[in-house]
Nucleic acid binder design. Structure first.
Length: 281
DNA sequence: ATGGCAGAAGCATTCTGA
């Protein structure tokens, strides 16, 4: 089962590129961020024509997330409201459409667009930290239900200096502060692992390049788009690939797709009771 | 320290992103 995530920076602007990409890669699930469109204006038809069902949680101009899947998503939840015990004032998170989750093929798919935070002095930075705290509570609640989880999206955080082209320059700045990393690690805890790092231990792999300063041509990127999976899924993980090619297209998104391949054949109740099926991380 | 570039809204310019 191929599961992908892509911050498309406007689905209407990027529509033909996304459809072409789906025809090439044939993902079972594609999670989108920054769709930047209200739900009634989302371009459903091209996806439905390819045989997908679409669940959206969007707004005008900013943010917006969607889950596109061959198997129809069930138990769709939009935002934190009612599904998190976080101690934050949940009201401040209602306006920004940044989270949609659903159950597909026995896995809870959680698609997030984590706030950028702007700069360390900005109130948006505090908002980002609080948002991640709320996400941690949201995950705690899923865990209580014993569910397999695939948490993916644009996290706007480089968890390690290996994920930054010039860590000396950017460490301690936005997307690379200890506070952000701690907040994200508190979401992951011991339960979720970085799919990409199962296969690749080295630096030099990016999912985002700034539009400015010729960043893509100079390959000055960051790895801030991630797919985190429950430990119990790690032995089913066949690959995790960043497809950087769409960044070279005409009028590209500044992010590229990240995808994992899970082999779910043979998954049954016995699988989860056999400790040999779990990697030691 | 600031700007570079891109998208949406909407028609000049501002807001936001990362």
């Amino acid at each position: 089962m191929l599961i992908a995530t892509w911050n498309v920076n406007s689905i209407r602007t990027r529509l033909s590129q996304v459809i072409d990409w789906m025809k090439n890669f044939n993902p079972d699930i594609l999670c989108l961020q920054e769709t930047k469109v209200m739900d009634d204006s989302f371009p459903f038809e091209p996806f439905e024509t390819l045989g997908y069902s679409v669940e959206v949680y969007g707004q005008k101009s900013y943010n917006g997330v969607a889950i596109i899947s061959k198997i129809k998503a069930e138990n769709i939840k939009k935002g934190f409201y009612g599904y998190s015990d976080c101690d934050q004032n949940i009201e401040i998170f209602l306006d920004q459409k940044r989270l949609i989750s659903a159950d597909i093929n026995g896995i809870k798919i959680i698609n997030v667009y984590v706030p950028n935070g702007s700069s360390l002095e900005s109130s948006k930075y505090e908002y980002k930290i609080n948002w991640l705290s709320c996400l941690a509570s949201f995950l705690d609640k899923q865990e209580n239900n014993g569910e397999l989880i695939c948490l993916m999206g644009d996290f706007n955080i480089a968890l390690s200096n290996l994920d930054i082209h010039d860590p000396k320059k950017y460490e301690g700045g936005i997307m690379a502060t200890e506070k952000e990393r701690n907040a994200l690690n508190n979401v992951l805890k011991e339960r979720l692992i970085d799919s990409f790092r199962i296969f690749e231990k080295n630096t030099g792999h990016w999912s985002w390049w700034d539009y400015r300063n010729n960043a893509y041509e100079l390959n000055k990127g960051w790895r801030i788009d991630h797919i985190y999976i429950s430990k119990e899924l790690s032995s089913k993980l066949k690959s995790c690939v960043i497809d950087s090619s769409p960044r070279g297209d005409l009028r590209p998104s500044d992010h590229v797709p990240v995808m994992i391949d899970l082999d779910l054949s043979g998954m049954n109740e016995d699988f989860f009771e056999d400790e040999d099926n779990f990697f030691e991380i």
